[in-house]
């Protein structure tokens, strides 16, 4: 297994505050890597840098052995990196189906004029987009809501819609920012199952999540951040037993021991 994504000494400053400090990790082809840590550990910032939303202050991100520093944000999807958002970024005035169809943008090429004139190619692409989007809506269980206005959907469904929207671009690396936030137990379990299917089909996942049940169930490896610094890396079992991680989550060891 070769490294799909290589993050080296990645740092990010906001004003005088160092949100992420010299973080290294790798995502291998077809694995699920979970990025965990207490609130404010810098997980989402790392994800935003890896997806090209904000540039790193220092360090390097390499994808398929290509540096991403000079790549503009809109080219990431075409390279095979797509994402979902912690604070949902849905297109509320479109239908659910249309939202997912936007995800096919990089898979289609029709120009403004061929779209406006509804030429054969544009029509063919439109058909393809519709079918693929429909297929992914079925995968995530939203097929019956395809023609509902996205703005009218509850939170949990919108999360699923964002996943469909990211997956319809057929990424090799899927970035998920707290996909299980606000979901109940059953929904989380269903979602975990779905992520395993996605991995089985060859897409690697970088997962930022708070839900430990989900992480322990599906993550191949875990990277733990605390106050912007990586404090541990390993398999779920190793992480569960790591005293540094326990300290970061539950306070210092002594207090734990006495309590």
């Amino acid at each position: 297994m070769t490294a799909l994504l290589e993050v080296q000494s990645l740092s990010r400053d906001f004003g005088g505050v160092r949100a992420v400090n010299r973080v290294d990790f790798q995502v291998k082809q077809g694995e699920i890597l979970a990025l965990i840590g207490p609130n404010g550990a810098g997980k989402s910032t790392v994800l935003n840098m890896v997806s090209g939303v904000i540039p790193p202050s220092e360090g390097e991100i390499r994808y398929n052995n290509q540096g991403l520093a000079q790549v503009p944000g809109y080219e990431y999807a075409g390279l095979g990196i797509t994402r979902t958002f912690q604070n949902l970024q849905t297109f509320d005035d479109m239908t659910v189906l249309e939202n997912v169809m936007v995800g096919m943008h990089t898979k289609t090429k029709s120009s403004l004029f061929s779209c406006g004139l509804n030429l054969g190619r544009a029509r063919k692409e439109e058909q393809k987009m519709r079918e693929q989007a429909q297929m992914w809506l079925e995968h995530v269980g939203l097929a019956s809501l395809a023609f509902a206005q996205a703005g009218s959907l509850p939170y949990g469904k919108l999360r699923l819609m964002e996943i469909a929207r990211a997956m319809v671009a057929e990424p090799t690396l899927l970035l998920l920012d707290e996909p299980a936030a606000g979901l109940n137990h059953t929904e989380t379990a269903e979602m975990s199952k779905m992520f395993q299917d996605i991995r089985a089909n060859g897409t690697a996942i970088l997962l930022v999540e708070h839900d430990m049940d989900m992480i322990m169930a599906i993550a191949d490896r875990i990277v733990v951040l605390d106050q912007g610094t990586k404090i541990a890396e390993g398999t779920p079992r190793e992480i569960q037993e790591n005293p540094k991680v326990i300290a970061a989550y539950l306070g210092t060891e002594e207090e734990e021991g006495r309590g």
């Binding site: 090209g52 944000g73 809109y74 080219e75 990431y76 999807a77 994402r83 970024q89 995800g103 990089t106």
Partner: peptide, 9 residues
């Protein structure tokens, strides 16, 4: 942001 991450220039 979402549009950019979908590959829209």
């Amino acid at each position: 942001i979402a549009a950019t991450s979908m590959g829209i220039d």
